[in-house]
Amino acid sequence: MTDAVAIRGLRKVFEGRAGAVEALAAIDMTLAEGEFACILGPSGCGKSTLLNVIAGFEAPTEGSASVFGAPVSAPGPDRAVVFQEASLFPWLSVRDNVTFGPRMLGRPKDETDALARRFLDLVGLSGFEHHLPDQLSGGMKQRVGIARCLILNPRVYLMDEPFGALDAQTRMQMQELLTHVWDQARGTVLFITHDIDEAIFLADTVYVMTARPGRMRSRIAIELPRPRSIDLLTDPRFNALRADILRQIREEAIKAMAEEERARR
């Protein structure tokens, strides 16, 4: 079977005015079809860059990314992206934001409107079809962002800290909603976060990245039963996983600080 996502020897260097910055160094990873993978790492470790390369927004300096065997060269609806800031079109209604993708591909309006109703219902937004994005809360915008990806029926979902800008309460609701949606829609997910609880709660596998330049430090299988609920947060197995990952993250954070101090000296 082909891997859903295969990253081979991926390296990314940004050429800036202050010189070159190596964001990613030699990343190798594969995601199986249907796997929910979370990538955890300290800020600035290049995890968003990794996602941008798979999405086709940025070209790798070395190495390659491929999705179901096809090398990535440009963005496309087979790889749906949920952004940190929902990035909805403010001049379109909720419904028209959700149907934007299929409409661009020429699907008829009555068909896409029916689909939009279904997916907005799935993310708990029925009745908001005709609202404008600016009339919605942060969590609701992000649900529209998820619905417009679901309607694409993509082969891979790429989520770039989608709940990072939400308050703790809303974030927890969104995590529950996402597991609920995922239990129904399935699909391969690459989810970027710096929130350890979020990663354990959502993922089948958690990848911990090193400080910049980013590498994969470890791969941790999360063998917690599904469907998952908030009760899981107090489960002893959950706590053991959290303690282990926390230790790894802290080591990376200390390394990052030392690196920065050395750079400043």
């Binding site: 999405a55 086709g56 440009a74 749906a80 992206v81 952004f83 990035s87 079109f89 661009m104």
Partner: peptide
């Protein structure tokens, strides 16, 4: 905003769209 362009591209919009 760059992410609006990226969002449109990932949803399959061509250059004209």
């Amino acid at each position: 905003p760059r992410n609006l362009i990226r969002a449109a591209r990932m949803m399959g919009a061509n250059e004209r769209q």
